[in-house]
Amino acid sequence: MSDTPIVSAQGLVKNFRSVRALDGVDLEVARGQRFGIVGESGSGKSTLARLLLGLDRPDSGTVRIDGTLVDKNQRFVHKTAQMVFQDPMSSLDPRMRVRDIVAEPIRDDTNRVTELLDAVGLSKSVLDRYPHQFSGGQRQRIAIARALAPRPAVLVADEPVSALDVSVRAQILNLLLDLTVQFGLTLIFVSHDLSVIRHITDRVAVMRQGRIVETGPTEQIYAAAQHDYTRELLAAVPRLRYRPSRDR
């Protein structure tokens, strides 16, 4: 049982009008893995994330979550896999209170909502507040609490830190790492930022123009990328030229 992949996709093709967003993607994510999908805008990475959760239908190909076909059993998918989005302002309804936002995937239950807020480091005093009263990092915490509500096994995070400042980015990355351990989550982390991907994932797929051009253990890809495009991406990542020495 545990050696079957928790998420698998075969031959995914998706067109938007005449543009081919996905051009035959195969993917397998093992249980408990932290899987990175990296690519630039237009690479199809966000489209892939949506197809994995059944939020959009592929033109051809199949997605299975925990062995179940995604378009056959939507209810099962929503319980098993959840999503966190890029822009924590747009992903929270400005007219809903925190308690209703977090409870959206479940039945209203203040105890459960308080428990979830606690897990993401927010106190229950925020229950009746609205999204605009929070900073970007806090909003992303609320969005993560909502995603955790149905006790999913898989968390898909689509650029969850790219709208955040560096210090807040580090806080949210720490939180995601803690939560994957605490709840035994499988994490699928979609990003354009190779340094973030390197830090948080143990396996990565590099996407370009709707295809996966390279996939493998993250450290291996960083140490010895096989594909030219991966090397180009790696070379373009801005690096801190000067950094403080650390006493470890």
Partner: peptide
């Protein structure tokens, strides 16, 4: 410190 992902141990 928060920016320096390259120097941090992954995970």
């Amino acid at each position: 410190a928060a920016s320096d992902l390259a120097d941090a141990v992954p995970g």
